[in-house]
């Protein structure tokens, strides 16, 4: 028996090593993709000049390259990374909370609400005092917060169960989508174009300020999730089993719901709607590292970042000299990855 248990123990050790290998491997891929994203852009800069501007801006030959790299490309790439990581984590937690593989950060209507906030701001053209340039992100964030309170309020009355949250979320989603459509219907062609461009989602809106805000939100969200990693893992066995293991399911759902809302709002408020990443990144991560949240959360973040990096590079290469909005490209880049894993995977992971 002891020999059997030892043999079995080494088998589980091998599985953990395999999962860690996958995590390190995708981190390496992400690092390469990140550099690749900074190297590409509509300005057709020399690769070595970009690397020199990146590594040693003080001694770089071309000041224009330094400005482009540090003021445009670096914030764009970092923003894509942070947005991808935020949506990846938010998607993983939505799928865990709702026990539904089709759940994503947008299932509960936060993104639609953010879009509505941006649309009315663009339609009425008002600006906030002191921070006029931040009017659209602030309004998008506030409306996402409003959607969060609506879903939470409904779920609080009827019970914080997956079913109630999904129904409340879908109702909120349709409400904000229809109000968004109404705003678009009322808008002039010029304003409509601006609204639609915001909806596409684009890293061109990224600044060092937005990178800092979204980055801080991401760090806070991960710190808030850390103590609940094992409880969230237990939730994958169903509410009753998790409760029997000592998890206060309602309180856990409440806490993580707010974290997801924060992550989603922080991601979409600055750059607009980015679809697909939050839905697919957790599935890719699960196929590689399983459902242990100690690995699933970082892997979902890395997969989200990787999809965004791939989409960002593709968005610059698709139309030379221009940057196609990244929200259009994310699915084009992510779907082949997903198809590949579905076709080669031996087990169901959802």
């Amino acid at each position: 028996m002891a020999t059997d248990a030892t043999t079995a123990g080494s088998a589980s050790g091998r599985q953990m090593a395999r999962r860690l290998f996958w995590l390190v491997f995708i981190c390496g891929l992400l690092a390469v993709a990140f550099i690749g994203d900074i190297l590409t852009g509509p300005a057709f800069l020399n690769v070595f000049d970009v690397l020199a501007a990146l590594v040693s801006p003080a001694t770089a030959d071309d000041p224009t390259t330094v400005i482009i790299v540090h003021s445009i490309r670096l914030p764009m790439s970092l923003m894509a990374l942070i947005v991808g990581a935020s949506l990846g984590i938010a998607g993983a937690e939505m799928q865990t909370l709702l026990g539904n593989p089709l759940a994503s950060p947008y299932t509960l209507g936060f993104s639609a609400a953010a879009g509505f906030g941006a649309a009315i701001t663009i339609l009425f053209g008002f600006t906030l005092p002191f921070i006029p340039s931040m009017t659209i992100p602030v309004m998008a964030f506030l409306c996402a917060g409003l959607a969060c309170l609506m879903v939470y309020g409904l779920a609080h009355i009827r019970g914080i169960t997956a079913e109630v949250m999904v129904l409340a979320g879908i109702a909120t989603l349709f409400l904000f989508q229809s109000m968004q459509s109404l705003v678009q219907y009322l808008a002039s062609p010029e304003v409509l174009q601006e609204i639609v461009f915001w909806m596409f989602g684009s890293m061109l809106k990224a600044t060092w300020f937005s990178v800092s805000v979204s980055g801080v939100i991401l760090v806070i969200a991960v710190a808030l999730l850390l103590p609940d990693f094992w409880k969230l893992t237990a939730l994958r066995l169903g509410d009753e089993r998790a409760a029997s293991l000592g998890v206060n399911v309602g309180a856990l759902r409440r806490r993580v719901f707010f974290v997801v809302a924060l992550l989603t709002a922080g991601a979409v408020a600055f750059v607009g709607t980015i679809g697909f990443v939050g839905l697919v990144a957790p599935h890719l991560a699960r196929m590689m590292v399983g459902e242990d949240q100690r690995l699933l959360i970082p892997a979902s973040a890395v997969c989200g970042g990787l999809i965004m990096m791939g989409a960002s590079i593709a968005s610059k290469l698709l139309s030379p000299g221009a940057v196609v909005p990244i929200g259009i490209v994310t699915a084009l880049v992510g779907v082949p990855f997903l198809f590949g894993l579905i076709l080669t995977g031996r087990q169901r992971h959802w």
């Binding site: 094992w230 237990a234 066995l237 293991l245 998890v247 399983g290 459902e291 242990d292 087990q347 959802w350």
Partner: peptide, 15 residues
């Protein structure tokens, strides 16, 4: 319907 492994499920006993 989870893809948690059998060992992970047992470990969760001491959550």
């Amino acid at each position: 319907q989870s893809s948690l492994t059998v060992l992970e499920v047992v470990l969760l006993g001491r959550l």
